[in-house]
Computed example of a mutant assay.
Amino acid sequence: MSLTDSIPTPPPHVLAASKRSWRDRVLFWGLLVLFVVGLIGLVTATGWRETWQELQKLTVTQFGALLALSLINYVLRGVRWHFLAARLGVNLSLHTSLLHFIGGFAMTITPARVGELVRLRWIRRMTGWTLERLTPLPLADRAFDMAAMGLVLGGGVLISGQGGLRAAPVAAAAIVTAVIVTRPMLLKRIVEALFSLVNRWPRLFATLRQSARSMGLFSQAGTSIPALILSAVGWLAEGFALYLLLKWMGADIGIAAATTIFLFSTLAGGLTGAPGGLGGAEASMVFLLSMSGVPLHVAVAATTVIRITTLWFAIALGALTFPFAEAFSNKSKMI
Rank of each mutant, 00 (worst) to 15 (best):
T127Y: 03
F83V: 12
M149N: 06
S70Y: 08
T182S: 03
Q56R: 15
P136Y: 04
R183G: 10
V179A: 03
R113V: 12
A172Q: 03
L92V: 09
G163V: 09
T44V: 10
P138R: 13
L153N: 07
E54R: 15
T110I: 02
T59E: 00
S160T: 13
S93A: 09
Q56L: 11
R124T: 09
I102R: 01
G103W: 03
A68H: 09
A68C: 08
A65M: 14
P136L: 10
M107I: 07
R49N: 01
G41A: 03
L120Q: 04
I180G: 06
A112R: 11
H100N: 11
G78D: 06
F105E: 06
G155L: 01
T44G: 01
L92F: 00
I102C: 01
I123H: 02
R87Y: 02
T46F: 05
Q62H: 09
Q62M: 11
W129I: 14
Y74S: 12
P111V: 07
I72K: 01
V176F: 10
L151R: 11
L42P: 00
E132C: 08
Q62D: 00
P136E: 06
R142N: 06
L69S: 09
L94T: 09
Q162K: 13
G163L: 07
K57R: 15
G64E: 00
Q162H: 08
D141Y: 09
R119M: 02
A171L: 08
D145Q: 05
W48K: 14
E50M: 13
F83S: 01
G64K: 15
S160W: 02
W81T: 05
R166I: 12
S97V: 05
T108P: 00
P138S: 10
R113W: 04
A174H: 08
H100F: 10
R80G: 08
T61F: 15
L99Q: 07
S70G: 15
W52L: 14
G164D: 00
T127L: 12
M185K: 05
L88K: 08
V79T: 01
E54D: 13
L98I: 08
F144M: 15
D141G: 11
L55N: 10
A85S: 09
A106Y: 00
G78E: 05
R133M: 04
L139E: 00
M185N: 08
A173C: 03
L67F: 11
T182L: 15
F83K: 02
A147T: 02
G78R: 09
G156L: 12
V60L: 13
G154Y: 14
R166V: 14
